[in-house]
Design a protein around this nucleic acid. Structure first.
Length: 565
RNA sequence: CGCGGAGUGGAGCAGUUGGUAGCUCGCCAGGCUCAUAACCUGGAGGCCGUGGGUUCGAGUCCUUCCUCCGCAACCA
C-alpha cells in the first residue's frame, strides 16, 4: 500500500502515426503525463518520461497503398509533425522515439524470440479471408457484406452498424474486400497466440485484490474482462508492414501492432539509457505508470503485463490512470471527418498560448467521463479564470509594489492575525494539491492551484493596501510582502500545469531558483529583492478570435455534409 | 442478450463508511477602485435520469427501465 519507490517511469500511449495529434490526445494522455512528470521532477525525484510514435499496423499500410507511397513515407510525415507538436506544447519527454527505429526492431524481435524459446506461445492454424487482388489477408473490418440479420448491405466483418449485431466475417452474405472490392477467398494461415488464459489467476489477484485503488473505469474494465475469462490472443499478423516474426515459419508475417507497440516503451528506454535501462524495468524499487486513453485499458492492464510476466524479468505497472474521451463541440473527435482541433493549427491561430490550452484541457479533463470541449468555454476560462484571477492578482501585487516601493520587495515586519489566517490557508493548499496530484486527480489539483490566486485577490481586497499607503507605510509593506510571496508561490504551484506562464512569472519577479519544497513558504523573496517591470501573464481573448474558430468548424461540417462517406 | 463507465441548479464538475445538497463559470444586487470593466461580498436558481424497495432517514445501499460513451478478443 504505502510502498516507497526510488524512481518513477512514466509512459504515455504511443500515438498512431497516421495523422497529426489533436486536443483529444493532449487532454487524455500527454498533459496529465507531463503534469505528473514535471511535478515529480520539481520534487527532486528521479523520473523518466517516455513517448514515441506507433508506426506499424494495417491502417498505415492501407493509407500508404491508397496514396501510392511507402508506409515509411507516411510515418515519416506524421512522426515529425507529432514530435514537434509535443515539443511546442512543452510535453517534457526524456525521449520521444518511434517504433520503426532499429533499436525497437531488435528489442521487439528479441522479446518475441525469448517468449517463443520459453514456450510461452501457442500456435494455431485457421482459415481467414484473403484478398487475391491485393494479395493480403483481410482484418475483419476490411471486409464488408450483407448483414444476415437486417440485410444492411454495408455491414463490417466485425459488426453491423445498422442493427448493432456483432458478426464474424464468415457471417456476411456476399463478402467483399474493402480494399480492392474483389471477392475474398478463405485461406489457411498460422499464427502465434499469447495464452492469456494461463495468466488469468495471477492477473486476477494482482488487479482485483492488489490494485483496488485504480480508477473505477480502469478497474471495472479489467474486472469485466477477467470475469468473462481470458482467451489466447494472436500476436502475429499476415502483413508486410511491421516487425518480421523472427522464427521459423514466420515468413511474410509480422508482430501484431499491439504486441509491438508497448515494447516501444522498453526500446525507447534503452535508446535513452543504453547502459542502465534495466533499473527502470527490472528493479522492484522502480515504479511504472502508464498514461493512456480508455480504448487502451485492456492492452495495458492485461495483455502487456502478461507479456512482461511471460518474460519473467520485468516489473509490472503500479498504476494505469486512463482517461475517458474528449468531444469537440458536442461531436466525437474524428480524424477522417477532420472534426478536431489540430495542435499545429492551434498554435498558428493562438501563438504563444500553449498554456491557455493546457489550462482548459486540464480544467475540463475527461477524468471520470467523456467531456466536451467548446470554444466558448475555452474563451470563458481564459478570460474569467486565467486573466481575471491568476494574471490579475499577480499584476496587482506587482503594480502596487512598483508604485509604493520602486519595485523592491518591502520588508515584512510583524504579522497580524489576518495575515496568519491567510498564510495558514495557503499552506493547506500545498497538502491538498499534493494529495490530488498523487492520486492523478489533475483537474482538482489545478483548481487548488487557482485557489491560491483567489486567496491572494481576497487578501488584497480585505487589506486594501492602496488606502493604507496614505497613512501606514509599515503595514502596507507587510501586506505587499505577503502578496509577493503568494505570487512566488503561484509560480511554483502552476509550474507542472502552465510551465510557460510559470517561467514568465519567475522572470517578472526576477527569481529563477524556485522548487516544490518552497511551496507554502513566505520567505521566497527577501527584503529589497528587485522585481522586474510587470507584464501581463495572460491576455483576454476577444470574441472574433472565437467566432473564427467556430466558423472553421462549421465549414468542416458543411463540407462533410456535402461529401458524406 | 452481455460487460464497464457516466447521467446532480443554465454550463462544467465535487459529493468520502447513508444524517440539513457543495465548487467553478454564467446570471442578479451591493461594495471597492491597486488591477487586463479585472477584484471582494451577498442573492436567486436543483423532486441529484426514471419507477419501485430497504431504512427513523438515500445523491449515497438493492432493484426496474431510459439516455450517452467505450469494450465485446483480427479496429492500435
Amino acid at each position: 500500500m504505502s510502498k516507497t519507490f526510488q524512481r518513477t517511469l512514466i509512459t504515455s500511449a504511443l500515438p498512431y502515426a497516421n495523422g497529426p495529434v489533436h486536443i483529444g490526445h493532449l487532454a487524455g494522455v500527454y498533459i496529465p503525463a507531463d503534469i505528473y512528470a514535471r511535478y515529480l521532477r520539481l520534487k527532486g525525484e528521479e523520473v523518466l518520461f517516455i513517448g514515441g510514435s506507433d508506426e506499424h499496423g494495417v491502417p498505415i499500410a492501407l493509407k500508404a497503398k491508397a496514396e501510392g507511397i511507402s508506409p515509411q513515407e507516411i510515418v515519416d510525415r506524421y512522426h515529425y509533425i507529432i514530435k514537434k507538436s509535443f515539443e511546442d506544447f512543452g510535453i517534457t519527454f526524456d525521449i520521444y522515439s518511434r517504433t520503426t527505429s532499429a533499436i525497437h526492431y531488435k528489442t521487439a524481435s528479441d522479446f518475441f524470440r525469448k517468449l517463443y524459446d520459453k514456450g510461452e506461445f501457442i500456435e494455431k492454424t485457421s482459415e481467414q479471408y484473403y484478398d487475391e487482388e491485393a494479395k493480403q489477408f483481410l482484418a475483419d473490418r476490411y471486409i464488408t457484406g450483407e448483414c444476415p440479420h437486417c440485410a444492411n448491405k454495408n455491414a463490417y466483418g466485425d459488426q453491423c452498424e445498422a442493427c448493432g449485431t456483432s458478426l464474424t466475417p464468415l457471417d456476411l452474405i456476399d463478402p467483399k474486400s474493402a480494399i480492392s472490392g474483389s471477392v475474398p477467398v478463405l485461406k489457411e494461415t498460422k499464427h502465434w497466440y499469447l495464452p492469456l488464459d494461463k495468466h488469468e489467476a495471477w492477473l486476477k489477484k494482482w488487479i482485483l485484490e492488489d490494485h483496488k485503488e485504480w480508477k473505477s473505469n480502469v478497474y471495472g474494465q479489467c474486472k469485466s474482462w477477467l470475469d468473462m475469462g481470458l482467451q489466447p490472443r494472436a500476436v502475429s499478423r499476415d502483413l508486410d508492414w511491421g516487425i518480421p516474426i523472427p522464427v521459423e515459419g514466420g515468413e511474410g508475417k509480422v508482430l501484431y501492432v499491439w504486441f509491438d507497440a508497448p515494447i516501444g516503451y522498453i526500446s525507447n528506454t534503452i535508446e535513452h539509457s543504453p547502459d542502465d535501462w534495466e533499473k527502470w524495468w527490472k528493479d522492484e524499487s522502480s515504479r511504472m505508470i502508464h498514461f493512456i486513453g480508455k480504448d487502451n485499458i485492456v492492452f495495458h492492464c492485461i495483455v502487456f503485463p502478461a507479456m512482461l510476466k511471460a518474460d519473467g524479468t520485468y516489473i509490472l505497472p503500479e498504476n494505469v490512470p486512463a482517461n475517458e474521451f474528449l468531444n469537440l463541440e458536442g461531436d466525437k473527435i474524428s480524424t477522417s471527418r477532420n472534426w478536431a482541433v489540430w495542435l499545429h493549427e492551434y498554435l498558428e491561430d493562438f501563438p504563444e498560448k500553449q498554456d491557455v490550452l493546457r489550462y482548459v484541457l486540464t480544467a475540463n479533463a475527461p477524468e471520470t467521463k467523456d467531456n466536451d470541449f467548446t470554444w466558448k468555454d475555452f474563451q470563458a476560462r481564459n478570460n474569467n479564470e486565467l486573466v481575471a484571477v491568476f494574471g490579475n492578482f499577480v499584476n496587482r501585487a506587482l503594480v502596487l509594489t512598483h508604485k509604493y516601493f520602486e519595485g523592491k520587495v518591502p520588508a515584512r515586519g510583524a504579522l497580524n492575525d489576518y495575515d496568519r489566517a491567510t498564510l495558514d490557508e495557503f499552506k493547506r493548499i500545498r497538502q491538498d494539491l499534493e494529495d490530488c496530484l498523487n492520486q492523478f486527480r489533475f483537474r482538482d489539483a489545478l483548481k487548488e492551484a487557482m485557489n491560491l490566486a483567489r486567496i491572494g485577490n481576497k487578501y488584497l481586497a480585505d487589506t486594501e493596501p492602496w488606502k493604507l499607503a496614505k497613512t501606514d507605510m509599515e503595514r502596507t509593506a507587510a501586506i505587499l510582502n505577503i502578496s509577493l510571496q503568494i505570487a512566488a508561490n503561484l509560480a511554483i504551484a502552476f509550474e507542472p500545469f502552465l510551465p510557460f506562464s510559470s517561467e514568465k512569472l519567475k522572470r517578472i519577479i526576477n527569481k529563477k531558483d524556485l522548487n516544490w519544497n518552497g511551496l507554502g513558504s513566505i520567505d521566497l523573496l527577501g527584503a529589497d529583492h528587485q522585481l522586474n517591470q510587470p507584464e501581463l501573464l495572460f491576455e483576454k481573448i476577444e470574441d472574433e478570435m472565437i467566432e473564427k474558430q467556430i466558423q472553421k468548424l462549421q465549414d468542416t461540417k458543411k463540407a462533410n455534409n456535402q461529401n458524406p462517406n
